[in-house]
Amino acid sequence: MALQDKYKELLDTASAQGITNLQVREQDNVLYVDGDAPTGAAKDAVWEVYGKIDPNFTAGDLVLNINATAGLAEGAQLKVTTASSNLNIRKEPTTEGEIVGKAAHGEIVTFVRKENEQWWVVKTKDGEEGYSFSTYLTPVG
C-alpha cells in the first residue's frame, strides 16, 4: 500500500485523464500500473506526474504501462514525432530490417495495423509501406 500512497497523485491523474482498463497491483515492492489512454496527451499527463514524483525514474518501484493507442483504427493519422531526424520505415519489424522508406520529422503517415506494441505498419503519402517504431508515432486528433 505504501507505493500506492507514493504514487497517489499519478493514480488520481490517471483516473482524471480518463485512463480505462486501469489496473494497479503491487508485488515485490514494485507497483504495476496498466491502462489505456484515450489520447497521447492523456498518457503524457500521467507520465508528467511520474516525472514529478521520480524525476530521473531511478526508484525502480513503478512499471507504468499506459497505452495510448488501444483504440487506433486502420486509416488513423499518425504524426512522426522523432527528435528531429527522419523515421525509418522497414521491411521487417526490427531495427535490423531493411529500410524501405523514410518519413520526415513532423510528417503525417497513415496507420495500417499493429505488429506489436513496438512496431506498427504505416503508409506514407508516397505509398511507402512498412514497419516503424511506434515510439516516434503520435496519433493525431
Binding site: F57, G60, N67, E117
Partner: peptide, 13 residues
C-alpha cells in the same frame, strides 16, 4: 515509456 511498455518485472535505472 518504451521500456515500461515492454512490461518488465522491474527497471533498474
Amino acid at each position: 515509456m518504451v521500456l515500461n511498455a515492454l512490461k518488465p518485472k522491474k527497471i533498474d535505472n
